[in-house]
Simulated scan of single mutants.
Amino acid sequence: MEDLLALAARQGGYVLRRQALALGWLDSSLRAGIRHGLLVRPRHGTYVPAQVWRSASATGRLLIVSRATLHRLGEGFVLSHSSAAAVHGLDLHGVDLGRVHVTSRGRRSGRIEAGVVQHAGPLDDGEVVLVGGVPVVPVSRAVVETACLAGVEGAMVVASSALHHGSTTDDDLAARARRHGQLRGIRGARLGLSLSDAGCHSAGEARSLFLCWEQGLPRPVCQVPIHDADGLAGIVDAGWLEWRHVGEFDGLVKYGRQNPWSSDPVAMLVAEKAREDRIRETGLGMTRWTWHDLDPDVRARTAARIRHGLERSRRWYSTPA
C-alpha cells in the first residue's frame, strides 16, 4: 500500500490500473481495497486513495480525474476548458465538474465518451503550456472556453478568479473571445467577461456581483478599505459608499482563506463582531449574505434585503446638503 500511496502522491492523487498491476497488485486486491474503504475508483481504470478523495473539493476531484484521464489518453491531447481552469487554480461555477475536457492536437471532430469530452483543435505548440508537468491550454483560452460552458454567472466567476490572481488581463480575455468567436455560448461568455472584477477574492464574491447585475442593484466596489480614527477598521467585500452602505459575503468564514481563529469559534465570533462594530461606527450600514442567499430561488429576496439596506443607510447616514 505504501508504494501505491507514494505513486499517487507523486502523480497528483491517482494511480492507473496498469501502474497498480506493475507494483504487484491484482485486480482482486484492488477490488478489496475499494471494499475495505482504502481506495476509490472514480473512473474505469483509475484509483484514488480514499482519504485523498474524501478530503478533496469538487474542483479538486475534477483535477485528480482530469490528470488521470490525460495520462490514460497519452500524447496528442491536452487539458482544456474547465479541466484546464482547474489545473490553473481558478474558481469554477456553473460547469459540470463530473466531465473532463481535453482537446486533441489532430482530431478534426470532437466526441463525448465515458464522461470525457474530446474537443477538436485548432491547437498548435503555442497554445500548450505546462503547469506542474501537465499540458494544458493557456489561462486566457481556458477562461473563455469555460465561460462558454458556464453562462454569465459562471463566466464572471472564472474570469474574476483569473484576473484576481494576475493570470491574465481584461485585454487578453477580450482578444481571446474575439479569436474564439465561433464557440457555442460565446455571447454569454463575453457578457460575463465584461462584468468580471479582479477585486473578487472568491467565487462567492463574483457571484454576489452577478446577483447585483441580475437584480438591478447598483454595482458595488469590491474590497473597500474602511478607516476610522484608529486606522484601518476593516476591508469589506462590497462598498456602496455613496449610499453609506457596505456588504459582506459570508463574513465569518471566508471562502478559500485561512482564518487565524478557525480552531476557536468563540474568538472568531468576538473578533468579527468587534470588526463590524468599528465599521458601523464610521457611519455605514451593513448587509451580510451567505452561499444560500446566492441560490437562484432566493436571489430576489436577497436583493430586496440589500436594496432596503441601501435606502435605509442613505436616509440615516448621509449628510444633509
Rank of each mutant, 00 (worst) to 15 (best):
residue 2 E to K: 09
residue 4 L to A: 03
residue 4 L to I: 10
residue 5 L to C: 01
residue 8 A to N: 06
residue 13 G to F: 02
residue 27 D to E: 14
residue 30 L to Y: 06
residue 32 A to V: 04
residue 34 I to E: 15
residue 36 H to E: 12
residue 37 G to L: 05
residue 40 V to Q: 14
residue 40 V to N: 07
residue 41 R to E: 12
residue 41 R to G: 08
residue 47 Y to K: 08
residue 49 P to C: 12
residue 54 R to H: 12
residue 55 S to Y: 00
residue 59 T to I: 09
residue 60 G to K: 02
residue 63 L to N: 05
residue 70 L to R: 08
residue 73 L to Q: 00
residue 75 E to A: 13
residue 76 G to A: 03
residue 78 V to E: 05
residue 80 S to T: 14
residue 82 S to Q: 15
residue 100 V to G: 07
residue 100 V to P: 04
residue 103 T to V: 13
residue 104 S to N: 12
residue 107 R to E: 12
residue 116 V to E: 05
residue 116 V to S: 03
residue 117 V to C: 11
residue 117 V to I: 13
residue 119 H to K: 05
residue 120 A to K: 11
residue 125 D to T: 06
residue 126 G to N: 04
residue 128 V to C: 03
residue 130 L to R: 06
residue 138 P to H: 05
residue 144 V to I: 13
residue 146 T to R: 05
residue 146 T to M: 08
residue 153 E to S: 11
residue 156 M to H: 02
residue 165 H to I: 05
residue 165 H to V: 09
residue 168 T to M: 11
residue 170 D to H: 09
residue 172 D to E: 15
residue 175 A to M: 04
residue 175 A to S: 11
residue 176 R to T: 15
residue 177 A to W: 00
residue 178 R to F: 06
residue 180 H to V: 14
residue 182 Q to F: 09
residue 184 R to H: 10
residue 190 R to N: 00
residue 194 S to A: 14
residue 194 S to E: 07
residue 195 L to C: 07
residue 197 D to W: 04
residue 201 H to K: 08
residue 202 S to D: 04
residue 204 G to Q: 03
residue 206 A to N: 04
residue 207 R to M: 15
residue 207 R to K: 14
residue 207 R to S: 06
residue 209 L to I: 13
residue 212 C to T: 15
residue 214 E to Y: 08
residue 219 R to N: 01
residue 222 C to F: 00
residue 225 P to F: 03
residue 234 G to I: 13
residue 235 I to A: 00
residue 239 G to Q: 07
residue 240 W to Y: 02
residue 241 L to I: 10
residue 241 L to E: 03
residue 243 W to I: 01
residue 245 H to A: 14
residue 248 E to L: 12
residue 254 K to R: 12
residue 256 G to D: 01
residue 260 P to A: 01
residue 261 W to K: 07
residue 262 S to T: 02
residue 264 D to G: 02
residue 265 P to K: 01
residue 265 P to I: 00
residue 267 A to G: 08
residue 269 L to A: 15
residue 270 V to C: 11
residue 274 A to Q: 15
residue 275 R to E: 10
residue 276 E to W: 07
residue 277 D to A: 15
residue 280 R to K: 09
residue 281 E to C: 09
residue 281 E to R: 15
residue 282 T to I: 06
residue 283 G to K: 07
residue 283 G to Q: 12
residue 283 G to W: 09
residue 285 G to Y: 00
residue 286 M to F: 05
residue 288 R to A: 08
residue 291 W to A: 14
residue 295 D to T: 04
residue 297 D to S: 10
residue 297 D to E: 14
residue 303 A to S: 09
residue 305 R to Q: 11
residue 313 S to W: 01
residue 319 T to R: 13
residue 321 A to K: 11
